[in-house]
Design a protein around this nucleic acid. Structure first.
Lengths: 134, 134, 134, 134
DNA sequence: TTTT
DNA sequence: TTTT
C-alpha cells in the first residue's frame, strides 16, 4: 500500500525527559517539545503561537535522549504520528496523539556541546565515496 | 527562533470531506485520513496498523478538497501539527490534534482522473529555466 | 551545528538497479529515479516535466533494492543530497549530484507484490504501545 | 501520477545572495548553502563533511532573500531538486543540480534579527481556530 | 472510517 | 512546560 506518515520537528524541551523501562527492559523516553510560529493577527500585530508535541522515543534512542537532553534543549526529531486510545476515570474513550521519533539530532545539549546525530540503530554507510573503486 | 513543525502524509480518506464556512465566508474542510503501516509482531506474523489523522484545510485548498476529494481517495497532504483545547460536557479540558494542511496533491480523485497539485495560493515560478537570459 | 539535509522522493526506476561491491564487500546500489510534475505553460497548456535523480544505496538497503526493485517499480526514497567531484578525460573538474538513500519503501515491486518498508538496519520499536506497563 | 520531489535544508549561505531579473522583470535569486554532517571515519576520528547546495528562488521569495539574507546567515529552505542541462565551451553536455526553493524561513539574518517565515505567495489561513463558529 |  |  502507498502510505506515508512522516513528521519533522525542531523545537525545545519543556521539561527534562522521562525515561522508563518496559517489563522486558526496553527504554521508553517521553518529553514535550515546543515549536513556535509567528503570525500577524487581524490588527496586523505580530503574535507568537506555541505548539506542544508529545514525543516518544524507544530503545537506544530513548537512552541517548535520557542521557543527553534536558529542559530547554533544542532538538531535531523525525518520526511518525500516532494516536493512542485510552479510558479516563469515568471509562470514557480518550485519545492522545504522540510523535514516535525514529531519528533524533541534538542541536544543543545539557552542556551546550556540539550537536550529534543519532538514529534507531541506523548506521552511516561504512564507506564513503572515496572508497568506491569504480 | 529556530523551529520547525512539518508533517507529510499520504493516505486515504475514510469518508467524504466536509466543508463549512466561517462567518466571514472562509471555507474550512475537514476529513480523516488513514495511513497504514505493516510490521511483524512478536510471533513473526505480519500485522497492519492503521493510523487516522484529522485533516483541516482552509480557504482555496478547502474548496478544492471539497470539490475533488471523496471517500477512498488517495491524497498527499503537507502541513503542520496543531492541538486544540476544548471543554467537554462536564467542563473538563480536552485536546484534539489536527493536521493543518498547507499543500495538497490528489493521487486519485472522485473520477479517478489524473493527479493535480495545489497549494494555498502558492504559485509555480512564472518562468521556467528556459526563460532565464543568463 | 544546526544543519539539515533531507530529501524525500517518490518515483519510478528508469532501469533495473545496478549492484556493485566495494573491495571490502559492502554492497552499493545505483539507479535513476523519475519524478514527474505537471504544470501549465504560458499558453495555459498542461505540460509534464520529468526530473531524473541518481540514487545511491549502501549495505543492506543496496542488497534489498538489487533483489526486489526493477525498471518501472514505484519506490519511496528518503536520504540526503550529495555532490561528488570528479575529473573528466581532459582533467577538468566535474560534479555529480546524487541522493544517498537512508530509507526505502517499495510501493510496487518486480512482481507487483505488497509494499514493504525497510531502512538501513533501522528497527521498529520492539514493543508497541500495548506493551507499555504505565 | 504518484510522485514526490521534496527537499528540506537548513544551512548557511557561503556568500551573499545574487539577485537577477528575467526579461519580464521576475526576480531570480541564487546562492550556495552549506549543510554539515559529522561522522566517524575508519579510525574512529570525528570528521566533518560539508555539502554545498545551489539554491534558486523566484519571484517574491527571491526579492526577500536578496534583501534579508547575507553570507553566513542560517536559513531553512524547502523545495524540489532540479537538474539543468547545458553545454560547456566545447559543446559537451553538462548538468547542474539545483534546489528550487518554494518556501524559506530565516533562522538568522543580516542584522541577526528575529526569524521570519515566508513562502511564495503562500498565506496563513486568514482566521485561526478561535474564529471557527462550530 | 480508507485501501490492498 | 521551552526559547528569543
Amino acid at each position: 500500500m502507498s502510505s506515508l506518515n512522516k513528521v519533522i520537528l525542531i523545537g525545545r524541551l519543556g521539561k527534562d525527559p522521562e525515561v522508563r523501562f518496559t517489563a522486558s527492559g526496553t527504554a521508553v523516553c517521553n518529553f514535550s517539545l515546543a515549536t513556535s510560529e509567528t503570525f500577524k493577527d487581524k490588527s496586523g500585530e505580530k503574535q507568537e503561537k506555541t505548539e506542544w508535541h508529545n514525543i516518544q522515543l524507544w530503545s537506544k534512542l530513548a537512552e541517548i535522549a535520557g542521557e543527553y537532553l534536558a529542559k530547554g534543549a533544542l532538538v531535531y526529531i523525525e518520526g511518525r504520528i500516532q494516536t493512542r486510545k485510552w479510558q479516563d476515570n469515568s471509562g470514557a474513550d480518550r485519545y492522545t496523539t504522540e510523535i514516535v521519533g525514529m531519528q533524533m539530532q541534538m542541536l544543543s545539549s545539557k552542556n551546550e556541546g556540539r550537536s550529534e546525530s543519532v538514529a534507531g540503530d541506523q548506521e552511516e554507510p561504512p564507506f564513503r565515496d572515496d572508497d568506491i573503486p569504480f
